[in-house]
């Protein structure tokens, strides 16, 4: 793995250089206090020290709403939406968001491969950047270090006010051809970044906890505070559920079929045509969401499906914390074990 020094003041030059290769998307300020990934027009507008964007990279590969089909009702003919693969560079991505993309890849490839996602995703280039964990990040607890470089082509690790630039593969080194401002690093200084927000257990032990807490009181306590707005689903970088709807033109002769992000926290999510709702209570919905992140897929794939980005907590209007939920479940589990065996788990 090659490593170079990159001065902070050279980052805009790097962005300008990358823009000549392909469109570049990077974090920008959005509103007063928030960030979002946007296409870079001026390198100076890119924010390198950001806590988290509102939406993750999911929005580029599985857009919040997209047309699937166009049709003529009169002629009863249907065509699929044309999607052209596009080389795009995603710059300044945090490791948890990269890990989320890898998890989405799995969900979208497994079983029936999802062509729309794959077409948008296949030519993407990822350039990572380190971050300072804030009160909400807990990715370390789910096995993702700040400096985790899996999935990236290049990675920028901040050291004091400058960066180490890691070249991780051929795509990465191709990106830097003709970029002159690099000086090789001789001794890489490693340091640990501290996470204030943590899960009480190593993530390996969490599926075991979830084996025992399906009927925990924790779900009811969360439900008392939850308004079911779905923010946690929609902002989660590994949630991918969607709804499908038809929309017709005013002349009622043609129309389109669209899909739009949906979420299991929303009341109608598990409702069938006859009116039966298979998850009609808040606590059932919260439980389903959290089990999807720590148990159901984790049992199959061995890693948590939560990447510890902290979005669901940072943006929850009711201030419900996912780490609190999991830690309370762990507490509940320990109490159960103690009651059963007299031994502290």
């Amino acid at each position: 793995m090659e490593c170079y020094h990159l001065a902070q003041k050279a980052v805009p030059d790097l962005l300008e250089h990358l823009k000549k290769i392909a469109p570049v998307y990077a974090p920008h300020q959005k509103g007063e206090k928030s960030y979002s990934f946007e296409r870079v027009t001026h390198a100076s507008e890119v924010v390198l020290d950001y806590n988290r964007t509102m939406l993750s990279l999911k929005k580029f590969f599985l857009p919040p709403t997209e047309r699937l089909l166009q049709y003529s009702i009169q002629k009863q003919n249907v065509v699929e939406e044309e999607i052209k693969p596009e080389k795009r560079i995603f710059f300044g991505v945090h490791s948890y968001d990269m890990q989320a993309v890898l998890r989405l890849d799995h969900n979208m490839i497994e079983g029936h491969p999802e062509p729309n996602y794959i077409l948008r995703r296949q030519d993407a280039i990822f350039i990572g950047i380190s971050f300072e964990p804030d009160d909400y990040h807990f990715s370390r607890s789910v096995g993702i270090r700040v400096e985790e470089m899996e999935g990236f082509d290049l990675f920028l690790n901040k050291v004091d006010t400058n960066y180490y630039l890691f070249i991780l593969n051929k795509e990465g080194s191709d990106l830097l051809k003709g970029f002159q401002k690099l000086k090789a690093v001789k001794d890489i200084v490693r340091f640990e970044r501290n996470f204030k927000n943590k899960l009480k257990y190593h993530y390996n032990r969490i599926p075991e906890v979830f084996q025992h807490v399906y009927h925990s009181e924790v779900w009811q306590k969360v439900a008392e505070r939850c308004v079911g707005c779905g923010t946690c689903n929609l902002m989660c970088p590994t949630c991918y559920c969607f709804d499908v709807m038809d929309d017709v033109a005013l002349d009622v002769k043609s129309g389109e079929r669209r899909r739009q992000w949906d979420g299991c926290m929303l009341t109608p999510f598990a409702e069938v045509a006859g009116g039966e709702n298979f998850r009609d209570k808040y606590e059932q919905r919260t439980r389903h969401r959290v089990y999807r992140k720590f148990k159901y897929i984790t049992d199959q794939e061995g890693v948590p499906w939560c990447v510890g980005c902290g979005r669901c907590t940072a943006f929850c209007p009711a201030g419900i914390s996912l780490t609190d939920i999991v830690n309370n479940l762990i507490q509940d589990y320990e109490n159960q074990q103690y009651a059963k065996t007299g031994v502290v788990a």
């Binding site: 959005k30 509103g31 007063e32 206090k33 928030s34 979002s36 509102m54 939406l55 929005k59 919040p64 709403t65 308004v227 079911g228 707005c229 779905g230 923010t231 929609l234 902002m235 739009q260 992000w261 979420g263 929303l266 009341t267 109608p268 940072a314 943006f315 209007p317």
Partner: peptide, 17 residues
């Protein structure tokens, strides 16, 4: 479902936060 959903689809900055 809540207006929050449509805000998220548009990636509006959350006014509550």
């Amino acid at each position: 479902y809540a207006v929050c959903v449509e805000c998220k689809l548009e990636e509006n900055e959350c006014l509550l936060t």
